[in-house]
Design a binder for these strands. Structure first.
Lengths: 266, 266
DNA sequence: CGATGACTTGACTGCTGTCAACGTGCGTGG
DNA sequence: CCACGCACGTTGACAGCAGTCAAGTCATCG
């Protein structure tokens, strides 16, 4: 995957940005690590040439060697069922770590594919773990990131298990918006790098439903859609529609849809 | 579940089983840890008196101090939405660790409630982390467990996002069965410690649907149900119905239901 | 033995999936 | 430059799975 077609003259030197200079330093691993320790972390990280759209970072069953941090661009991770059906498990933006689910068994349970031209930091896990034994704060940070991943997954379970199609898409858009905010992008305007089909698959909806909902949201003045470009016009109301946590993770609002709300007991 | 009505005179002394003597040692943290190291781990673990059914181990928002290992009995973890709606996130059997999702933020995002009389090992996280810096294999084991948790959550996302009601319940039963096997219990016969409502909530189904499916499965000769007692008669066929991974986590079988299978692309 | 809660069963409804046709944008090749 | 193909997206018609509502049964317990 790393090597594919050199394209242009992207000299490796240009890509070699140290952790300390990376704008994602607040999001990625290094939080709370001192300067000299940061350099040690930096030294084990490998930065490959950008991955063109559609290329795999790794495939299902690939042996686990590294964790990957997204530096720019985006990827989707997905599993495939026996019959070749694809199940999108997540979309990954700059600053996010991929491959945490592979530590346990030694191979990747999911595949990761670039949704656009994407550059990656490769972190050899063995080295990271060794370094972790020497740097408790790094170790702690790693545990925190994994814990956060678990928490996020739990949040996704709620969305998939209990929410209506409308709430799912609204939640998805708000969540994306929040993630963009964190990266210094506009909260109200962004481009989707994934297809309607990917979104639907991820949210457990048919792609037609996603398309219809985009149209409905637009008609209701919640947002404007033009192909991949999304403009959130009434973010507040979209939060209401999402029936849940709005800004960065605080709960909000209730919901009263008919279906998909089985719980009511105990 | 192993114990159903333990009650009697469970003196605290009886419960004080060292890690090394615990029958769950293969499942819980200590895998791959040497004898003397095991004693050190043992020394930081606190074993409380059993939790009666319905009691909380912790509640949402409780400050995070400890991880908890189930020693006997079972619990459910759940979140509550603003309007008091409960969302069951998981059921936890002996040997499983609870609270991993609390490391990141310092408080518990979920509540944990005993489904029956349940005993617990309390592991102060701070101590565990310190010990981890001294015992790389312990540290590694902790990472593996968290990674597995992430992997399991991903599996749940597939079930919730893509599967029909029938497949969900079948998956749930097979998964339970597998977990019982791992603990040395019968794969074909067990007692559910949770209510139909809990199951439905967990699977994103109405409790009526769960009830109907139990009936249908029974009519089709897949299993026998009597209140909480389940006997899997045709485990193989139930696997087929689950449309996925059957034994311990290996993929299997296909599915061809009509609804709930939006993905089909790319 | 009645109260309570858990579970079952039936009737009905509707959200959302499936199927299908049609637009739209983009790249390729003539 | 245009025709063409192709992938992606939109929209409509229809149907079915599973939710809601409601009534009834069963078990446990005081």
């Amino acid at each position: 995957m790393p090597t594919r077609k050199l394209e242009k003259v992207v000299s490796l030197k240009d890509i070699r940005v140290a952790c300390r200079e990376c704008s994602l330093i607040e999001i990625c691993l290094p939080v709370g690590i001192g300067q000299s320790d940061l350099d040690r972390l930096d030294s084990i990280i490998d930065r490959k040439r950008p991955l063109p759209r559609g290329d795999h970072l790794f495939r299902i069953g690939d042996p686990f060697q590294c964790l990957y941090a997204v530096r720019s661009g985006s990827l989707k991770t997905y599993a495939t069922s026996e019959d070749g059906q694809e199940q999108v498990m997540g979309f990954h933006l700059p600053g996010e770590l991929i491959g945490l689910d592979a530590i346990a068994e030694g191979d990747h349970p999911l595949a990761a594919k670039a949704l656009e031209t994407t550059s990656i930091c490769e972190i050899p896990f063995h080295d990271l773990e060794s370094l972790g034994t020497q740097l408790p704060s790094l170790q702690h940070q790693l545990l925190r990131i994994m814990s956060k991943e678990i928490r996020d997954d739990e949040h996704n379970m709620v969305i998939l298990g209990q929410k209506s199609a409308e709430e799912r898409l609204a939640s998805f858009l708000i969540s994306l918006s929040n993630r963009f905010i964190r990266r210094g992008f506009s909260a109200h305007q962004f481009n989707l790098s994934m297809s309607r089909s990917d979104i639907g698959n991820y949210l457990g909806l048919a792609l037609e439903t996603v398309s219809r909902l985009f149209t409905r949201f637009q008609n209701e003045g919640l947002l404007r859609v033009d192909r991949k470009h999304i403009e959130l016009i009434d973010r507040e109301r979209l939060c209401v529609f999402s029936g849940a946590r709005c800004s960065h993770g605080t709960p909000k609002q209730h919901s009263q849809h008919s279906q998909h709300r089985p719980s009511k007991d105990q």
